[in-house]
Simulated scan of single mutants.
Amino acid sequence: MSNALLSQRLNQATHAVHERLDAAVKAHDPFSSRENFAPFVAAQYLFQSQLQALYQDAELNQLFDDLAQRCRAQQARADLADLETDVPQTLPATEPPASQAAALGWLFVSEGSKLGAAFLLKRVAALGLDQHFGARHLGEPAGGRAEGWKRFTRSLDALPLSEAQQAEAEAGALAAFERFAELLQHSYARASAHA
């Protein structure tokens, strides 16, 4: 495993937790109605808001040239307005990543989700939503999804990380998936309470 590229290692390490999250999303059926999609967007907003500090981090921006432009918190916030849904109170953040290596794992999860967003964007079309209204946070990044992901993983895989740092990145990626699952649960519970 230590010979694998970091992006491959993170993919393998997060496979099971990613599948569990996909199942949790499906269980909430976010594409059945706009009302059911709104808590999904709220979870995305909370997650991206928590990541804003990483996307703005000066040291991380030296590793990834376009990092500051990649955050989607503002798009998710605009989507909530389109869906006539209140912006949720930011939940107390989980502990911020303990190291730059752990932060790389969080960014890997956030950036990787843009690939799956292409499929989700097709699903929300049935709700009359698209990357200009209600589903901006799922929109295609400038330069294209595949190209943006390749640029990100090329930079990630080129970093000279020790085995210990790679393990920290792995722990960060797992923590990011768990955090999104927690925010998803919170957002749907909140929506049920206000229904």
Results as ranks from 00 to 15, higher is better:
Asn3Arg: 15
Asn3Ile: 13
Ala4Asp: 07
Leu6Val: 04
Ser7Asn: 03
Leu10Gln: 00
Asn11Arg: 15
Ala13Val: 06
Thr14Ala: 08
Thr14His: 03
His15Arg: 14
Ala16Met: 12
Val17Lys: 06
Val17Ile: 15
His18Leu: 07
His18Trp: 10
Asp22Cys: 01
Lys26Gln: 15
His28Asn: 13
Phe31Ser: 03
Ser33Asp: 06
Arg34Met: 11
Asn36Arg: 15
Ala38Thr: 09
Ala38Cys: 08
Pro39Arg: 02
Pro39Asp: 07
Ala42Lys: 00
Tyr45Gly: 00
Leu46Tyr: 03
Leu46Gln: 09
Phe47Val: 03
Leu51Thr: 01
Gln52Gly: 14
Ala53Ser: 13
Ala53Met: 05
Tyr55Ala: 08
Glu59Asp: 12
Glu59Ser: 12
Leu60Ser: 07
Asn61Ala: 10
Leu63Asn: 08
Leu67Trp: 04
Arg70Ala: 13
Ala73His: 12
Gln74Arg: 10
Ala76Ile: 08
Ala76Gln: 09
Arg77Leu: 14
Arg77Phe: 11
Leu80Gln: 01
Asp82Cys: 10
Asp82Ala: 06
Leu83Ser: 04
Glu84Ile: 06
Thr85Pro: 04
Val87Met: 09
Val87Tyr: 06
Pro88Thr: 03
Pro88Tyr: 01
Gln89Glu: 15
Leu91Asn: 09
Ala93Leu: 07
Glu95Ser: 12
Pro96Ser: 00
Ala98Asn: 04
Ala98Leu: 07
Gln100Leu: 15
Leu107Trp: 09
Phe108Gln: 06
Glu111Asp: 08
Glu111Gly: 07
Glu111Gln: 13
Lys114Val: 12
Leu115Cys: 07
Leu120Phe: 07
Leu121Cys: 02
Lys122Arg: 15
Lys122Glu: 15
Val124Phe: 02
Ala125Thr: 04
Ala126Cys: 05
Gln131Cys: 05
Gln131Lys: 09
His132Gly: 07
Phe133Ser: 11
Phe133Gln: 12
Gly134Gln: 00
Gly134His: 00
Gly139Gln: 01
Glu140Val: 14
Glu140Pro: 04
Ala142Ile: 08
Gly143Arg: 05
Arg145Thr: 15
Arg145Phe: 11
Arg145Gln: 11
Ala146Ile: 14
Glu147His: 12
Gly148Asp: 10
Trp149Lys: 00
Trp149Gly: 04
Phe152Thr: 03
Thr153Trp: 01
Ser155Pro: 05
Ala158Asp: 08
Leu159Ala: 08
Glu163Asp: 15
Ala164Ser: 11
Gln165Cys: 05
Ala169Phe: 05
Ala171Lys: 09
Gly172Pro: 05
Gly172Val: 03
Phe177Ser: 01
Glu178Met: 09
Glu178Pro: 05
Arg179Ser: 06
Arg179Thr: 13
Ala181His: 11
Ala181Gln: 13
Glu182Trp: 07
Leu183Met: 02
Leu184Arg: 06
Leu184His: 05
Gln185Trp: 09
His186Met: 10
His186Tyr: 15
Tyr188Met: 02
Ala189Cys: 05
Ala191Val: 08
Ser192Pro: 00
Ser192Ala: 14
Ser192Arg: 14
Ala193Trp: 03
Ala195Ser: 14
Ala195Phe: 09
